[in-house]
Each structure stands twice: as C-alpha cells, then as structure tokens.
C-alpha cells in the first residue's frame, strides 16, 4: 500500500498572493510554524495551584534536579519525559506545547526520587500528575491516528452493537482524509472474507435488542462527557478568583 500522509504534503493553492509587491501565486506546500512564544498565561498554573496536590508548583525555579534523577528520563531513557519542562510549560501557560506531552506525562512510575531530592520542596510527582490531570480533563492530547481509529470504532459499534469491518474501514478513511486504491482494497477485502474475518453486507452480524440498548449507552457516554467538562471548568474559575497571596 502506498504511504499517503496528508499532513506532510498538503498543498495550498494561492490564486492571487502578493508579498511586498511581489507576485507569489501558485502552489505552496511548505509552511513553517512560527517558533515565537507570544503570551504568558496563568490559567494552568492557577488551576494546578488550586488543587491540593499541585500547590507546590509555584516554588519551582527550574534547576532540573528532578529530571536529572528521574527514572523515566535518565534510567529508562525516555528523553521527552522531563518533569522540569512540564512544570515550566505549566508555569508560563504554554498549553499548546504542553499538550504534546499529554500522553507522555502519564509514564511517571511514582518512584518519588524527585520529591526526595527537590531543593525547593516541590512535590514534583504530585505536581506532574496534577498537570496531567489538567490536560486530561481539559481535552486530552491532540488527536492521533489511533484516537481517530477509536472514534471510528465507537461510531461503528454504536450503529449496530457489533462490528462491521468494511464500514469501520470506510469511516476511518474518511476521518483520516485518505483514500486507499481500489486494487488494494479488493485484495484486502477478499483475503479477510475468505479467512472469515469480514462481516459486512449480507454476512453482517446483528445484536438482539440493540434498538433498546443503544439509547442507554449513548446516555452514559454523554453523561461522562458532561462530568469531564465540569471537572476542568469549575476549579479553573475558582482559581482565577482566589487570592494569589495565599501561602501553600
């Protein structure tokens, strides 16, 4: 199958584009994201401080003692797990950058070496987990292909209570915005059909009583989503109004 990664080859057609009087119309396919950090925001650090486990975050002065001794960072070698950096991003409110680590942040194994060694008494392990919680309840990580697959899977399952592999593939392709060539699709379909792993069309399974089950499940999912939103919004608004002079 050919590799089609849309995010790498997006072409933007500019019919009429002029920069400083020079005509630069045409196909543009290379865009550099600006690296300049342009704002400071106290939203995250205020939220973290408002949580009982997170209130020592404001003590951090970025010495890096925690990261130097971190099991994950140093011993296990997971370079992107850097508790000092997570704390800094939260302190300056750089949410976009922090969100890239929304998954990684949970790799902490709570050995608590950082807490033991921190010269400023930051409860690093608790603070990092609080930052992770913030990211989790405020929208999680940026959607990855795996997340989109999960979404397609859930949608597919909710439709009939049982998986339809062909429909799943179609939905996922739509979410990813890619198209697999027909020849490859046919070959894959036949192989799966012959080995008894494709249940679609006339071979599709059904779930008895699904029409009654489905609203129950949908309602549960909706309630969970509502609870998740309430969790992040309520403490954040409390934190903003709270006294910043409060000693932890």
């Amino acid at each position: 199958m050919p590799i089609v990664e849309p995010s790498l080859v997006t072409v933007k057609r500019e019919e009429k584009l002029e920069l400083d009087g020079i005509d630069v119309s045409g196909d543009w396919n290379t865009f550099l994201e600006p690296r300049v950090h342009t704002d400071l925001d106290l939203k995250i650090v205020d939220w973290v401080r408002s949580q009982p486990q997170g209130e020592t975050i404001s003590r951090c002065w970025q010495c890096g003692t925690c990261t130097a001794g971190c099991c994950m960072h140093t011993d296990y070698g997971l370079e992107e797990f850097n508790p000092r950096y997570f704390i800094y991003l939260a302190q300056i409110g750089y949410e976009e950058e922090l969100r890239k680590y929304a998954q990684t942040i949970w790799r902490c194994v709570s050995c608590n070496k950082c807490v033991e060694r921190c010269p400023k008494g930051v409860k690093v392990e608790e603070v990092v987990h609080t930052i992770g919680t913030y990211l989790e309840v405020s929208g999680g990580a940026p959607e990855s292909p795996a997340d989109r697959f999960d979404r397609a899977y859930t949608e597919n399952l909710l439709a009939r209570g049982v998986l339809d592999e062909a429909a799943l593939f179609r939905t996922y392709e739509r979410l990813e915005g890619r198209k697999t060539p027909a020849r490859d699709l046919l070959r894959l379909g036949f192989t799966m059909l012959l080995s008894g792993r494709l249940h679609t069309g006339p071979f599709a399974h059904r779930t008895r009583g699904w029409r009654r089950m489905r609203p129950v499940l949908t309602k549960i999912l909706e309630e969970e989503e509502r609870a998740r939103r309430a969790r992040v919004e309520a403490p954040a608004s409390r934190a903003r109004g709270g006294s910043p002079g409060r000693a932890p």
Binding site: W61, I92, K120, P244, G245
Partner: peptide
Amino acid sequence: WKSMQQYGVKFIR
C-alpha cells in the same frame, strides 16, 4: 523564595 511561593511572582530566564 517567598516571592514565588507566597506571592506568585513569575521568573523567566
């Protein structure tokens, strides 16, 4: 120390 901890003054290097 107090400025960070008690008064939330932020430091940027």
